[in-house]
Simulated scan of single mutants.
Amino acid sequence: MQKGVAGESAAAADAQDGRIPALGEIGLNSFAPYVMNRIMARWNANLAEDLKARDMTTSKMRALAVLNVSSSLTINELSVLAVTEQSTMSRTVDSLEEQGLILRTPRPDDMRVRDVTITAEGRAVFEGIWPIMYGDLTRMFSGIGEDEQQAFLATLHKILRNIRRHEI
């Protein structure tokens, strides 16, 4: 993409002049949401295929991963952090609870709210799938140095702050 005034992209410069560039002018490979979607679609497809052998779905894996690093969450919080629709997460939590991998307990101060926590068995299951996830991660970043990875993550966090709707 060409640079405009003060290092801005040509698209940003055009937008300041009241002209919005066409997608064809930007190009799909220079349109960040398109590239991010391609990356995440491939990541999710690879991971789903890798997890299938362990009879694990992506939604279950995401829930266990988030709960593995969180002490306790509501289903709504879990659905945000696991990037899963709330209705899908409710069904996922039902299934994980039936499998004994998570527990739902009512909050003492508000019996309507249920806290979701991972069980020891759930942690063991997650520890079994973590090497698969980590292997996919290392393949994704193959040939990309630590400095580039950290800069990329910093940029992603800035983007997330710009677009997020939840504080978590």
Rank of each mutant, 00 (worst) to 15 (best):
L153H: 09
H157S: 08
E148P: 11
D55Y: 08
I144P: 14
R139F: 03
L78F: 00
N46W: 05
L47F: 05
E167A: 13
A22G: 14
S72Y: 00
N29W: 11
D14W: 08
F126E: 03
E85L: 10
A32C: 09
M61S: 05
H166G: 05
M140W: 05
Q86F: 04
A82L: 01
E127Y: 03
I129P: 01
V113S: 07
T88F: 02
A45L: 09
S95P: 13
E8I: 09
W43M: 06
R62E: 01
G7Q: 08
P108M: 07
R38Q: 13
R164Q: 09
T155S: 10
M140T: 07
T105L: 06
D136M: 08
I144M: 15
G100P: 04
E127K: 06
M56L: 13
P33E: 11
E148T: 14
L64P: 04
L67C: 00
R19Y: 12
N76K: 10
D109Q: 13
S95N: 13
Y134V: 02
N37T: 13
L156N: 11
Q99D: 13
I168N: 04
I118W: 00
V69M: 04
I159T: 12
M56Q: 13
K52W: 06
I144Y: 08
T58L: 10
V66I: 02
F152Y: 15
A82D: 00
E85R: 06
V35Q: 14
N46K: 12
I163G: 04
M36E: 14
G128W: 06
M36W: 06
L51M: 09
S70D: 00
L23F: 12
M133T: 01
F141L: 11
E25A: 09
Y34F: 12
A11R: 03
Y134I: 05
Q2M: 05
A11S: 07
L153R: 12
G145I: 11
M1Y: 03
S59C: 02
G27M: 02
A151E: 15
T58W: 03
A53C: 08
M1N: 03
A48G: 15
D109F: 11
R114C: 03
T92L: 00
L47E: 06
L153D: 08
D147C: 02
Q149C: 10
A22Y: 14
V113E: 10
S142D: 15
S87K: 12
W130S: 10
L156T: 07
L28Y: 12
F126K: 02
R107W: 04
S71W: 01
R112F: 07
L137G: 02
S70Q: 03
S87Q: 10
I20N: 13
M140N: 03
I102N: 00
R112W: 06
Q16C: 08
I20F: 12
K52F: 10
T117F: 02
S90V: 07
